[in-house]
Simulated assay, not measured.
Amino acid sequence: MAEIEFDDFLKVDVRVGRVVRAEPYPEARKPAIKMWIDFGDEIGEKRTSAQVTKHYDPDMLIGKEVMAVVNFPPRQIGKFMSEVLVLGLPDENGDIVLVGPDKDVPVGGRLH
């Protein structure tokens, strides 16, 4: 992977948000969950779709703090417009585990 400059890193706006609503997305090609995430007053509520059904169901995501890239352009995912990219890591089977802070932090906080 190519090295990047620090200024390149600063262009990626990664923030913490709290999931306020989640529901199954059965129309997606691969199993997914639609999420509405509150990023605080500056950014507001944004939505996304994520293939995280192996480890999460919609009810358990409500209230969860997650990290997301908030400055990508919106992307159409089937009939759903995704506005942010939630971040996750693959487990040993390649199934996604969401990334979030291990202590409570204010929503909207930017990754340093």
Rank of each mutant, 00 (worst) to 15 (best):
V105L: 11
P101S: 12
R21S: 08
V69I: 13
M67I: 03
E83A: 02
A50P: 01
G44R: 04
Q51S: 13
V99I: 08
D91C: 09
V20N: 07
G94P: 06
V70I: 10
K46M: 10
K54D: 15
I62Q: 00
V66D: 07
M60L: 08
G94W: 09
E65P: 08
I77L: 13
R29P: 09
I33P: 02
N93D: 12
D57V: 14
G100H: 01
V105T: 09
G63S: 13
V52H: 02
A68M: 15
G63K: 06
V52S: 03
E23G: 12
D57N: 14
V14T: 12
K46N: 01
A22W: 00
D102V: 14
K11E: 10
V99R: 01
P58Q: 04
R75P: 04
A28C: 09
K79C: 05
R29F: 10
K34F: 04
D57A: 13
V52I: 10
Y56T: 02
V12A: 09
V97K: 11
K103W: 06
M81F: 03
L98A: 06
V12K: 14
D57E: 14
I37T: 04
P73C: 00
K46F: 01
M35N: 02
D57K: 13
D104P: 15
E92T: 11
V105Q: 03
P101Y: 14
F72R: 09
G44K: 04
D59C: 00
K79I: 15
Y56I: 02
L61H: 02
V97S: 01
V97G: 00
E27V: 05
E92C: 02
A68P: 08
G40F: 09
V99T: 08
D41G: 14
L61K: 03
R21L: 06
V16D: 08
V52K: 01
I62N: 00
E92L: 10
G63N: 09
P26V: 14
A68Q: 10
R15L: 09
V20S: 10
K34R: 15
G63F: 05
M35P: 07
P101D: 15
D13I: 14
K103Y: 15
I96W: 03
T53I: 01
P74K: 05
L98H: 06
V16T: 15
L89I: 13
G78N: 05
E45Y: 05
V20M: 12
G17E: 05
W36A: 12
G100D: 03
V12I: 15
